[in-house]
């Protein structure tokens, strides 16, 4: 059990850098999400960790043990890792108990312990009553739990999860997320979780690696990712928000209070910076057209979407910049509103 280290790891397929010099230090016991749109190289990275893909460059280490370099390769069967596949990969010709017990067969384990370990693993995921069933008799969520139990049974150093919730419906996802969290707390294993769903990544992981076109663009906690995105691409990828151009300020700063509105004043024509403005930081108020305009910032309502707990309002400022706001009641389309921005994050150019 030790730190999992990716050092300048690259994967090249026919001159295509699918994974481009990724370096990560993953402390033991952390829950890491590899997040990115499809084709960003996250699954390839996971498969390199598992040993199903070779490295083109770089090095993979688990503590002092080298797992793989560009030349050498420890086979997957010797890595003591567990993996939950997107398709669950339960063997259809084996019962639940046989599926869970299979990894034990390849380790020298006394037969008494064998049965006990299977029982413990199945109890952890509350699947003991189904031990003698076959995978095809189980529901999606149950299959997922069996796949988890199969990982758990050998006490792996690292558990890899490849979009494990992609095939489940929304309600089941919530309960499976809870299972993963409990699993992580109970085993203390390092977990690497691949997903394209930012909400899933945010709610599960304590560290997130955001990938884009094979590169690592940000490696931070979910909170930092949300509030302090490093690039405009991350800002647009994570959560809701608008990118506004405004007065030049230093990069990567959270700006709050009275001064924020002034940054975006329409008369401001000087050198510009890009800002991320989250919709919850945009307050709007209907302007009575007959009264003289007092507010510095105004915008026109272009459309709105009812989201149940609130309305999502889409706005356009007089200088054609678009932004989003939340509001508790509906506003008429075409109406002019006054804006009050309470917080903004200045992005790197």
């Amino acid at each position: 059990m030790a730190e999992l280290i990716l050092n300048q790891v690259s994967k090249v397929f026919e001159q295509n850098h699918v994974v481009d010099q990724i370096s990560l230090n993953i402390p033991q016991g952390s829950f890491v999400a590899l997040l990115g749109p499809s084709g960003c190289g996250k699954t390839t990275t996971l498969r390199m960790l598992a040993g199903f893909e070779t490295l083109s460059e770089g090095e993979l280490r688990l503590g002092h043990q080298t797992l793989a370099t560009a030349k050498t390769q420890l086979p997957p069967e010797d890595r003591n890792m567990g993996m939950v596949f997107q398709s669950y990969a339960l063997w259809p010709h084996m019962t639940v108990a046989e599926n869970v017990g299979y990894p034990l067969k390849h380790r020298r384990i006394p037969s008494g312990t064998y049965q006990k370990k299977i029982k413990d693993a199945l109890e952890t995921v509350e699947m003991m009553p189904y031990a003698q069933r076959y995978p095809q008799d189980l529901s999606g969520g149950q299959r997922q739990r069996v796949a988890l139990a199969r990982c758990l049974v050998t006490d792996p150093d690292v558990v890899l999860l490849d979009e494990p919730l992609a095939n489940l419906d929304r309600h089941l996802r919530a309960s499976m997320e809870e299972s993963f969290r409990a699993f992580h707390q109970r085993t203390g294993a390092t977990m690497i979780y691949v997903t394209h769903d930012q909400a899933e990544a945010m709610s599960l992981a304590n560290q997130i690696a955001v990938m884009e076109k094979g590169r690592l663009v940000q490696w931070s906690s979910p909170e930092a990712l949300y509030h302090q995105p490093k690039t405009q691409w991350v800002a647009e990828f994570i959560g809701q928000g608008s990118i506004l151009m405004g007065q030049k300020v230093p990069e990567n700063q959270t700006l709050m209070g009275e001064g924020v509105n002034a940054l975006f004043h329409p008369t401001n024509e000087r050198a510009q910076s890009a800002f991320l403005v989250r919709p919850q930081h945009v307050q709007i108020e209907l302007i009575n057209a007959s009264l003289p305009q007092s507010a510095a910032l105004t915008a026109r309502v272009t459309s709105q979407v009812y989201r149940g707990e609130r309305y999502e309002i889409h706005l356009e400022m007089p200088n054609q910049q678009r932004l989003q706001a939340f509001h508790s009641v509906a506003v008429p389309i075409g109406a002019t509103v006054s804006l009050n921005l309470t917080q903004a994050w200045s992005l790197a150019a």
Partner: peptide, 13 residues
Amino acid sequence: DPSLEEAAQIAGA
């Protein structure tokens, strides 16, 4: 499904 065999490989087979 290739992952069926990969799962066995991960399991140490």
